[in-house]
C-alpha cells in the first residue's frame, strides 16, 4: 500500500475569541485520506472549515489536536512542503515582478539551481499559456492570467501534491475551462490535487473523490460517482431514435414493473453553450 498523499487524523482546531471566554470550533475531529494521483474535492458552505483544514495541511495554522501528514511527513515540518504547491483563493502576487521573474523568485525559494529555474520557467509558462506575457508585469495581468501564473508558481519545484483553494473564483468561463483542463493535465501526470471550490459542476467534472464539511465536521465522504448516482434508476441516451422505437420502448416499460420517470431531450451545459458561441471557430 502506498503512502497517502494527505493523511488527516482526528484533526480539531479551536480558535479562542480575543477578550471573550467563547471559542470557535473550526474543525472537529476530522479524519480523511487522499491517495496519490487522486483529485480530491473538499466541499462545504462558507465557514465550514475547508480553508482552515487546508492551512493546517500546509503548516500555516497549527492544529489544536490531531495530526496531518503529507506523503508520510508531519505537515508541521518545513520539509513536508517540498512536495506541495499551493494556490490560495484570489492571490495577488508581487505586482512589480514580471511573469518569469515571479517564477524565478519562487524557484529560488525552493532551492532550485539557476539552470533548473530557467528550464522550469520556460516549461511552465508554455504549459499555462503565458509565454507571450512572460515579460509583462503582473500588475497588468487579468484575473485569469493571475490564476494561471499562480498555478505555475505552485508547480515550480515539481511537487507531488497541489492544494488549490477556489482556483477559478472570479475567472470568466473560458479561463475557468482552461484552469480545469490544466488540473486534468496535472492529474494525467500523476499529481495529487486537493481542491476547494464552490463550483460544484466543475468539481463533478474533475474530482475522483469528495468530502463534504459542515460546521467543521465531515458529513459525507467517498468516491464521487458512488455518492451521486441514483442506485434504483437507469439512464438511456439514444441518438437518431425514430418515434416507432420510442413507442415500442414505452410499451415494453408499461408491461414491466419499472416506471418511466422522465423522457426529455438531453441538454448541453450553459458553460458548453457559452464557450461554443464565444470561442472563435478554428479555420
Amino acid at each position: 500500500m502506498s503512502t497517502p498523499a494527505i493523511s488527516i487524523q482526528n484533526l480539531t482546531k479551536i480558535y479562542p475569541i480575543p477578550f471573550k471566554r467563547e471559542r470557535v470550533t473550526a474543525v472537529k475531529d476530522l479524519s480523511l485520506t487522499v491517495e496519490p494521483g487522486q483529485v480530491y474535492g473538499l466541499l462545504g458552505p462558507n465557514g465550514s472549515g475547508k480553508s482552515t483544514t487546508m492551512k493546517i495541511v500546509l503548516g500555516l495554522v497549527s492544529p489544536t489536536s490531531g495530526r496531518t501528514e503529507i506523503f508520510g511527513r508531519d505537515s508541521t515540518t518545513v520539509e513536508s512542503r517540498e512536495d506541495v504547491g499551493f494556490l490560495p483563493e484570489n492571490p495577488y502576487f508581487y505586482k512589480f515582478l514580471t511573469g518569469s521573474e515571479t517564477l524565478h523568485f519562487y524557484g529560488k525559494l525552493c532551492g532550485l539551481s539557476g539552470t533548473k529555474i530557467r528550464d522550469r520557467t520556460k516549461e511552465l509558462l508554455k504549459l499555462v499559456g503565458l509565454e507571450n506575457a512572460a515579460d509583462r508585469r503582473l500588475g497588468g495581468y487579468s484575473k485569469g492570467m493571475l490564476q494561471r501564473i499562480g498555478l505555475a508558481q505552485a508547480m515550480i519545484q515539481e511537487p507531488r501534491l497541489l492544494v488549490l483553494d477556489e482556483p477559478t473564483a472570479g475567472v470568466d468561463p473560458a479561463g475557468s475551462r482552461e484552469i480545469r483542463d490544466l488540473i486534468l493535465d496535472f492529474k494525467k501526470r500523476g499529481i495529487t490535487v486537493l481542491l476547494c471550490s464552490h463550483l460544484l459542476e466543475q468539481v463533478q467534472e474533475i474530482c475522483d473523490r469528495i468530502g463534504i464539511l459542515d460546521r467543521g465536521s465531515l458529513i459525507r465522504e467517498g468516491r464521487l460517482d458512488e455518492l451521486i448516482s441514483i442506485q434504483n434508476q437507469t439512464e438511456l441516451i439514444l441518438e437518431n431514435a425514430p418515434p416507432e422505437l420510442l413507442a415500442a420502448i414505452q410499451a415494453i416499460i408499461a408491461k414491466s414493473p419499472a416506471r418511466l420517470v422522465e423522457q426529455r431531450k438531453p441538454q448541453k451545459t450553459l458553460e458548453r453553450y457559452f464557450l461554443d458561441v464565444t470561442t472563435p471557430s478554428q479555420p
Binding site: P36, G37, V78, E79, E82, D83, Y94, F96, L97, F105, K108, L109, C110, G111, L112, E123, L127, Q157, E158, P159, R160, R189, G190, I191, T192
Partner: peptide, 29 residues
C-alpha cells in the same frame, strides 16, 4: 514532467532563500 519526489535536499537554513526574499523586498521598496 511527472510527479516525482523532490530532487532538492531541504536545508535547515539557506542563505540563498534569505537573499531571494531580501532582494525581492528591496526591489519592492
Amino acid at each position: 514532467m511527472t510527479a516525482t519526489p523532490p530532487a532538492t535536499q531541504h536545508k535547515i537554513f539557506s542563505p540563498a532563500r534569505v537573499w531571494a526574499i531580501a532582494s525581492n523586498t528591496l526591489l519592492e521598496l
